[in-house]
C-alpha cells in the first residue's frame, strides 16, 4: 500500500532523512518510534507530500508521490492524516469541519456529507458536540473529531503524527481507544507515537528511527522481545521504565 524506497531529505545542508526504506502492506499497522528529532514526523509527512524529499521514491497505492505529474490533492484526499495539534479549523463548527472537504474535494452533496460526518462523529462518541466550535472542546475531543474528519474522506490508509503527544494524560486513552478500534477493523495505519502500550496491543510492525535513519524495522514481538540495536534497547529501557 505504502512503499518507501531509499528516501533522503535535507533542510539546506542539514540531512534529516538518510536512505530510509520500508513498506506498509494493506491492513497493516506500523508504529514508528524514536527519540525527538529522529525524523519520524518528517518521514510520515513525506508520505502524503506535505514535506518534499530530494532523493528516493514513495509510492502510495501504486502512485508515485514525488512525481511532479501526480495529482497531489487527489492522492492526499485518499490518505487520512491526524496531526499532533489536531489542526481542526477553528473558524468552522465541528460539523463544518467534517463536511468541508467531502463537499469541495469529493463533490458530495451537503446532505450526504453531513450524514457521513455525523455518523462518524457518533462513532467517536461526540454527537452531542456537533454544533460547537473546536475551541469549545477538550484536546481529546478535538483529536477524536480530527480522526472522524480524516475518516469522512473514506481513506485507504491513515497516517498519525504523534496523535496523543499534545494531550493531557487523562485524555490519551479516549483517543487511543478510537485508534485501536480502527486498527482492529483492518485499517492500514502508519502511526508515529511514543505510546508503546498501543504498539504492543495493535501494531504488526515497529520501526525505530534515530538521527534520520531507520535503525530497526521488525515485527512487534521481535522489537519488544529482543531489539537488535543498542540504540533501540536504550530507548526502550528509558521509556518502558516509567
Amino acid at each position: 500500500m505504502i512503499s518507501i524506497k531509499n528516501i533522503s531529505k535535507w533542510y539546506g545542508s542539514f540531512q534529516v532523512l538518510t536512505d530510509c526504506s520500508t513498506e506498509v502492506k494493506k491492513g497493516e499497522v506500523v508504529v514508528v518510534c524514536g527519540p525527538s528529532g529522529s525524523g519520524k514526523s518528517t518521514i510520515i509527512k513525506c508520505v502524503n507530500a506535505l514535506e518534499p524529499f530530494q532523493k528516493g521514491e514513495i509510492n502510495v497505492d501504486g502512485i508515485s508521490v514525488g512525481d511532479p505529474k501526480t495529482d497531489l490533492p487527489k492522492l492526499r484526499s485518499r490518505i487520512g492524516m491526524v496531526f499532533q495539534n489536531f489542526e481542526l479549523f477553528p473558524h468552522l463548527s465541528v460539523t463544518e469541519n467534517l463536511t468541508l472537504a467531502q463537499i469541495k474535494v469529493l463533490g458530495r452533496t451537503p446532505d450526504a456529507a453531513r450524514d457521513k460526518g455525523l455518523k462518524l462523529l457518533d462513532r467517536v462518541g461526540l454527537m452531542a458536540h456537533k454544533d460547537k466550535f473546536p475551541g469549545q472542546l477538550s484536546g481529546g475531543q478535538q483529536q477524536r473529531v480530527a480522526i472522524a474528519r480524516a475518516l469522512s474522506m473514506d481513506p485507504i490508509a491513515m497516517l498519525f503524527d504523534e496523535p496523543t503527544s499534545a494531550l493531557d494524560p487523562e485524555m490519551i486513552n479516549e483517543v487511543l481507544d478510537v485508534m485501536v478500534q480502527l486498527a482492529q477493523e483492518g485499517m492500514t495505519m502508519m502511526v508515529v507515537t511514543h505510546e508503546m502500550g498501543f504498539a504492543k496491543r495493535v501494531a504488526h510492525r515497529v520501526i525505530f528511527m534515530d538521527a534520520g535513519k531507520i535503525i530497526e524495522d521488525c515485527t512487534k514481538d521481535d522489537f519488544f522481545g529482543a531489539p537488535r540495536s543498542e540504540r533501540a534497547q536504550l530507548f526502550l529501557s528509558k521509556i518502558l521504565h516509567h
Binding site: 496531526f83 495539534n85 489542526e87 479549523f89 468541508l100
Partner: peptide, 21 residues
C-alpha cells in the same frame, strides 16, 4: 499556523481552496 495549511492539503484541498476556506 502552518499546521492549518497542512490540514487543508492533507484533506485534499488545493491551494485556492485551502487559502479561500
Amino acid at each position: 499556523a502552518r499546521g492549518q495549511v497542512w490540514a487543508g492539503y492533507a484533506l485534499g484541498l488545493n491551494y485556492w481552496l485551502t487559502m479561500g476556506k
